[in-house]
Amino acid sequence: MISIEQLFSHLGYKKFSEGDLQKTITTGYTSDLLSDVMGNADEGSVLITIQAHKNTIAVASLVGMPAIILCNGRTPTEDMIGAAKEEGIAILATSESQFTASYKVAKLLALV
C-alpha cells in the first residue's frame, strides 16, 4: 500500500492533477476499455490506461480509483484535468508503455 504522494515521487511521471496526496493505492488495473475497468477494477487501484479524456474520470470516480496513469505519451484534455481536480483524482502521464508502468507500480506495491 502506498500513498498518492509516494506514487508521484517514486515514478517521477508528469503531474497533471494532484488528487488527494494522502489517499492510498492498494493495487492497479491496466485497461483501455472503460466497461472492463468499470466491471472489474478494484476500489483503491491506480488505473493504467491510454484513455486521456473526461470519461475516464467518470469511471475512476464511480469505481473509487484515486489515481490514473496515462501512458504512451498521451496527455489529458483540459476538461479531463478539470474533472479530475473536481473529483480529487490524481493524473500522472508518461511516455512509457502500459506494460512498463504496470510493472513499476507492481514493484512499488511489492506485489512482485
Binding site: D32, S35, G39, T49, Q51
Partner: peptide, 16 residues
C-alpha cells in the same frame, strides 16, 4: 477509440 463499444455493456448490466 474512446474505450467504449467493447460489447461488454449489456452483459455487464445483466451480471450485476
Amino acid at each position: 477509440s474512446l474505450g467504449f463499444g467493447a460489447g461488454m455493456g449489456l452483459p455487464n448490466v445483466r451480471s450485476v
